[in-house]
Nucleic acid binder design. Structure first.
Length: 479
DNA sequence: TTTTGAGTTGTTCGA
DNA sequence: GTCGAACAACTCAAA
């Protein structure tokens, strides 16, 4: 008799309800990860996510081996692989955490049915991937919230669930598992473009814990102010760790709460509150997707179906490559390409530029982010892009059009961020670092810049693009 | 049912 | 340079 633990979105051993419960029963534990190459194309991780997954699985293998039970890795769908494994190991039960996205949820239902037919018990847990269960937070009318603040008030007032400890020891099944190696999944790119990712990140539970510690020690106390400046280390950078379940948001909350209690510093406590509120945007994302599964592809506001999006592959490519001619946008897009991540402030600027300045559909931006972000998460990505597009719940009003010049000058006043990611502009003086097309010939010569050759001229004029966007949004409103 | 207040992250214009 | 208003109504949530 064996307990199978299917590890899906929680690639960690601490605060893992399925693993914890299976381990408590003293029976042998078989932890399983399933790679699903044939699943729905929209559910397949993008290139950057696959890179991360490779190292996350490697770390998980090591952690589980240290506890005594090696990880079994297989390729295949859970509803075919898990019943096979249950039979081969004479398993009494399969333990796993529920998924709240449409594809994962449907998979849960199919798996539970198949296992029950085979006489195997299903021990399904509310996922510790999130702080709330999306099915339990509703407004007074009994319908799902569509506005963040009231959602947050209700959701954050729910009693916090204490994180579960990591099991100290696991009993392996007698039979040696026959799986594949992480390498066999071929998650790493054939052509190695991942040097920037390797420099920037340490995937895995240990890396996640270390990152949380760094954030709490060095940035949390100034989070509210510093989080908007992309050249500073002002944000948590925990998003990919959360995405792969290498750390649970309950652990993050518990650690921060205990630090605040210990230090009794009102400024720290205030900033911690600002950060924890941000964590609830992640909750809001999964919550909305649970209740409005079509939002991954369809605008939440139906009138946006007639939005006059343009079709311009050249412009899309220039945006993707960081060649729009607007330094802050290009810096962000190149940070993304190199490191698999982009600072939140710059995500808003770059995304707004695609949707409002270029009038390209938010779905094409979402697709690019899906492929290039190490933290690509279907719920967060969808919410973020619908918000920017103005077609989501609680969205940015249509007349709120980020000015990429002003944003650059305000949040990257010295140009440190632009200089890091757009090195061809680095020698330019601060005054024109966000507007190279306004620099004098002498200044450009001295900086070795030939506009249109070494760095592009602006793809669109801000004022004209702004007017065009306002007209397009007016068209949607009036029908 | 009706009413009322509020709504992540901005920009521009004119006094 | 600073400040407030306009952008333009609309939807959501709760009383």
């Amino acid at each position: 008799m064996t307990n199978i633990v299917w590890l899906r979105q929680e690639l960690r051993i601490e605060d893992n309800p399925a693993l914890y419960s299976a381990a408590r029963e003293k029976a042998p534990v078989l932890p399983v990860y399933l790679w699903q190459p044939d699943s729905d194309a929209s559910a397949m991780p993008g290139g950057a996510s696959k890179w991360w997954l490779h190292y996350s699985l490697t770390a998980l293998e090591k952690a589980l081996a240290a506890l005594g039970a090696p990880l079994l890795i297989r390729a295949g769908a859970p509803e075919t692989e898990l019943p096979k494994l249950a039979a081969a190991y004479n398993a009494d039960a399969v333990f796993w955490s529920r998924a709240y996205d449409p594809i994962g949820g449907a998979q849960d239902d199919r798996l539970a049915e198949t296992l029950q037919r085979a006489g195997v018990a299903c021990r399904i847990f509310a996922a510790a991937t999130h702080l709330i269960n999306p099915d339990t937070v509703m407004n007074g009318a009994g319908t799902p919230y569509k506005v963040f603040t009231p959602f947050w008030k209700t959701a954050s007032a729910m009693p916090a669930i204490k994180p579960l400890p990591a099991p100290t020891r696991l009993v392996p099944p007698r039979k040696k598992p026959a799986g594949v190696t992480v390498n066999a999944l071929k998650l790493l790119p054939e052509h190695d473009w991942a040097a920037g990712l390797r420099d920037a990140w340490t995937p895995g539970e240990e890396g996640a814990t270390a990152q949380l510690e760094r954030f709490v020690d060095s940035a949390l106390a100034t989070y509210e102010e510093a989080r908007d400046y992309p050249a500073q280390q002002g944000v948590s950078r925990l998003s990919p760790h959360l995405r792969f379940g290498e750390i649970s948001p309950r652990v993050i909350t518990a650690v921060i709460d205990s630090v605040c209690t210990e230090r009794r510093d009102p400024q720290l406590t205030h900033n911690a509150g600002v950060y924890l509120r941000q964590l609830f945007w992640r909750e809001f994302g999964v919550y909305l997707l649970r209740h409005f599964p079509a939002m991954t592809h369809a605008p939440m506001r139906p009138e946006f179906a007639r939005f006059p999006w343009r079709n311009d592959d050249d412009a899309l490519k220039q945006w993707q490559r960081g060649l729009t001619g607007y330094p802050i946008v290009d810096a962000g897009m190149r940070e993304l390409w190199r490191t698999g991540w982009m600072h939140n402030r710059v995500r808003m600027i770059a995304a707004s530029f695609l949707v409002k300045h270029l009038l390209l559909p938010w779905q094409s931006g979402a697709a690019w982010f899906w492929d290039t972000l190490v933290d690509a998460d279907i719920a967060n990505n969808t919410l973020g892009w619908q918000w920017v597009g103005g077609c989501g719940p609680d969205a940015a009003p249509y007349f709120r059009i980020f000015n990429p010049i002003k944003q650059g000058e305000r949040y990257d006043a010295t140009g440190a961020y632009v200089r890091q990611w757009v090195p061809e502009l680095a020698p330019l003086d601060d005054k024109h670092i966000h507007t190279p097309w306004l620099a004098s010939k002498t200044a450009l010569n001295e900086a070795n810049i030939v506009l249109g050759e070494t760095y592009p001229l602006p793809l669109v004029d801000h004022q004209e693009a702004r007017k065009r966007a306002l007209d397009a949004y007016a068209f949607v409103r009036q029908g």
